[in-house]
Amino acid sequence: MGRLTALDDALAQAGVDPATYDAEEQADDLGEDDRTAVESAARQLATPEMVRALEAVQQQARDVCGTSLTL
């Protein structure tokens, strides 16, 4: 299972909409098991490899499309 799929599954299991979920504001609303699963899956996305990959995609978007993927 991929890291994004694991996070998506954890959010779905917790009944959380990934488009609107804010961990700082809503984490306390989740049960302990759901919160742990979501936080664990999210941490797996913050590996050095994932950070480098995201930076490369962002640079490509700036170079090719002339746009930033961040606000």
Rank of each mutant, 00 (worst) to 15 (best):
E39R: 11
D9L: 15
V16G: 06
R3G: 01
V51W: 01
A19R: 08
Q26A: 11
A12N: 12
S68D: 11
S40H: 07
V64H: 08
P18K: 02
A19V: 02
Q59M: 05
S40L: 05
D63F: 08
R35I: 05
A27S: 15
R62A: 03
G2V: 02
L30W: 00
A10T: 00
E32R: 09
D28W: 08
A56D: 13
G31C: 03
S68Y: 03
M1G: 12
P18Y: 03
Q26Y: 02
V51A: 14
L71T: 08
T5M: 11
L11R: 02
T70W: 04
L69S: 09
R35S: 10
V51G: 06
Q13D: 15
L54D: 12
A46H: 07
A10V: 00
M1A: 15
D33K: 07
T70F: 04
Q26N: 06
L4I: 03
E32S: 13
Q44M: 13
A37H: 01
D8Y: 04
R52S: 15
T70P: 01
A41I: 12
R52T: 15
A12T: 08
Q26P: 01
G66M: 01
L11P: 01
Q26G: 00
T5R: 14
L69K: 03
T47R: 14
A53D: 09
S68F: 04
V38I: 14
T5P: 01
A12G: 11
S40D: 14
A10I: 01
C65W: 03
T20K: 07
S40Q: 11
L45M: 14
D28N: 07
C65K: 11
M50H: 09
Q44K: 12
L7M: 08
A61P: 00
A56I: 06
L69V: 06
C65A: 15
R52V: 07
V16W: 02
L69M: 13
G2C: 04
E55W: 05
A12H: 13
A41K: 02
A42E: 04
E39F: 13
A10C: 04
A61S: 10
L45R: 04
S68H: 06
R43Y: 05
A56R: 13
D22Q: 10
Q13P: 03
D9T: 13
M50G: 15
D22C: 09
E49I: 04
E55D: 09
L45W: 10
G66K: 00
P18R: 04
A61F: 01
T67V: 15
D63Y: 04
A53T: 15
A42C: 03
M1V: 08
D8T: 09
A23L: 04
A42T: 03
